[in-house]
Amino acid sequence: MTARKTSQTMKPATAAKKLGVYLEATPAEFQDGVVSRDELDALQTDPPEWLRDLRRNGPHPRPVVAAKLGVSISGLARAGITEALTTDEIESIKSDNPDWLEHERATQAEVRRQAAEQKQQKS
């Protein structure tokens, strides 16, 4: 007797995180269901229009916002940015180049430099 293989599923929040999108901006049917590994692979391989639009225009989750700004998630929090931002809002922050952004980018660069230095010392 062969056991039937069942497909692993994940919560929509997990799938949204893996796709790099803000869950609350996804379609209701995505938010209300479960996502199988096969469905996730299909979304990554051939994203539907709603997913391409979210990735292009946002709103983006904080990890994506932080990466686009070149700062840490903690840096966003220190700057008072706790919500998802659209691509236009991110570009506006970049063009304004506020003091907090310069400071947080410098902090992030220093953290990366120290991590690289420690990695090199271990080698």
Rank of each mutant, 00 (worst) to 15 (best):
L101H: 09
Q114H: 11
K122E: 12
V34C: 05
Y22H: 15
A109C: 06
P48Q: 07
D38K: 13
I81F: 11
L54S: 01
I81Y: 13
N57Y: 09
N57G: 00
K122S: 09
D46M: 02
P61F: 01
L101W: 10
P61R: 10
L23R: 12
E49A: 09
L69P: 03
T9Y: 06
G58F: 02
S7K: 12
P61D: 02
K68E: 09
E117P: 01
Q121I: 10
A77M: 06
A79P: 04
D96Y: 07
T14G: 01
S36L: 03
T86K: 11
E24Y: 07
S74A: 11
D88M: 05
L69Y: 05
M1Y: 02
E49Q: 11
K68F: 01
I73F: 00
T26K: 09
P63N: 09
G75Y: 04
E91L: 10
Q8T: 10
R113N: 07
G70C: 08
P47T: 05
D88V: 07
Q108C: 09
H103S: 10
T45R: 14
P59F: 02
I90L: 07
F30E: 06
L69N: 03
A13N: 09
Q120I: 07
R105W: 08
A28D: 14
A115W: 10
R112Y: 06
A67Q: 14
Q120T: 08
A109G: 03
Q44K: 15
K94L: 15
A16Q: 08
T6G: 05
E83L: 03
S95T: 14
P27V: 06
D41N: 12
W50Q: 02
E24K: 15
D41C: 00
L23S: 07
R62D: 02
D53I: 03
T87I: 00
T82F: 11
L85P: 03
L76M: 06
E39H: 09
D96L: 13
R37L: 12
V21N: 07
A42N: 12
G20T: 03
S92E: 14
S95R: 15
K94M: 11
A13M: 06
A13F: 01
H103M: 12
A15W: 07
T9A: 08
A84Y: 03
I93R: 09
L69V: 02
Q31A: 13
R4L: 11
D46S: 11
K68A: 08
D32G: 04
A42R: 15
K122P: 00
R112C: 04
L19P: 05
A25M: 07
A77S: 14
A3D: 04
A67C: 00
P63L: 05
E83Y: 01
L101S: 07
G70D: 04
G33E: 08
L54R: 05
T6I: 11
A28Y: 12
P47Q: 07
P27E: 09
E49H: 06
A106Q: 14
K18A: 10
I81D: 04
V71Q: 06
